[in-house]
């Protein structure tokens, strides 16, 4: 019989003739929280190559079967912008006067919002796609999720290029505050991912979550200052004021155009909160993973 019995999860031994030893037991992995967190993030680092390969695989597969390829990434923000410009011009809806030209307002809003939605959907979608693999092989699901997030980030970089011609056309000179762009990008990424990760455990068991996301996101878009500035009174103004996306959307516009920094502090606060949620959710996914595999079927 075995000489030493280590408890839950992994211990790698340095001795040459000793093999890495793992013990699976009913005990909650939270009995050794430090080790658990170390394992989770150690795995993300150890599987960085797999993440990269999965990212490339999906990217290649997406464009190999299409003629227009990257055009499909540009189209959604351009189309949304076009629709709102049309509606506004036709007086079907009347958007309150904005500080910056309305087309610039809308296109920044849609780029940020679309990125947010993609990031939020990505973990649940990647998890569902990777399911056939990690239901049968011992591969961390986090690798599939991370590859999906990497792709959403890549797509964001591609379609944020549409902002360049818009800025040139309206001759907007970005102020010094554009040094905060990295803060915006990171906040946006982390917020979207944090919310997406929280949905994974429930979303993998119940299909309701995947069904609900597009419906709810379509609704939430109008509770965020994406295509119109926040109203000054009424219920909508209260909701929008408390919406965590508001500082991100408004802040992005401000630092790209007017140079107003009033949204930076709330944004930093959101970043901190979202980062904590991200870490906790990643650890939570690792903890519940065996239960998800057991319940998702054979």
């Amino acid at each position: 019989m075995s000489t030493s019995v280590q408890s839950t999860t992994q211990t790698t031994s340095s001795a040459a003739n000793q093999l890495p030893e793992v013990v699976y037991s009913p005990e909650s992995p939270l009995a050794k929280p430090g080790k658990l967190v170390g394992d989770v993030f150690g795995d993300l680092w150890r599987y960085r190559e797999l993440i990269w390969i999965l990212f490339l695989r999906d990217l290649k597969a997406q464009f190999r079967q299409s003629y227009l390829g990257y055009v499909w990434l540009f189209l959604p923000p351009v189309m949304t912008t076009a629709i709102w410009l049309f509606l506004n011009a036709q007086q079907v809806i009347a958007v309150e006067e904005t500080q910056i030209p309305y087309p610039v307002f809308v296109i920044i809003g849609t780029v940020v919002w679309q990125t947010f939605v993609k990031l939020l959907q990505s973990p649940v979608v990647s998890f569902a796609q990777g399911k056939p693999v990690f239901m049968k092989l011992n591969v961390p699901a986090e690798a599939f999720i991370a590859a999906g997030t990497a792709r959403a980030v890549f797509e964001f970089l591609i379609y944020s290029i549409v902002l360049v011609p818009v800025f040139l056309t309206y001759q907007i000179m970005p102020p010094w505050t554009i040094v905060f762009i990295p803060l915006i990008v990171v906040t946006l990424m982390v917020t979207g991912t944090a919310l997406g990760l929280m949905l994974v455990p429930i979303g993998s068991l119940y299909t309701d979550v995947q069904q609900a996301i597009p419906v709810i996101m379509g609704f939430l878009m109008y509770l965020s200052p994406v295509v119109f500035p926040p109203p000054r009174s009424g219920i909508a103004s209260v909701v929008i004021a408390w919406n965590p996306m508001t500082p991100i959307l408004m802040g992005t516009r401000d630092i790209l155009t007017s140079g107003d920094t009033q949204h930076l502090m709330p944004m930093a606060a959101i970043l901190v909160a979202a980062s904590i949620i991200c870490v906790l959710s990643t650890v939570a996914i690792r903890i519940v993973m065996p239960h998800l595999v057991a319940r998702m079927g054979m």
Partner: peptide
Amino acid sequence: NGLIKPDKGKVQISGRV
């Protein structure tokens, strides 16, 4: 393979699987 965890007892694995 460690895909699911036991409800009782334990599994001990040494080495690359």
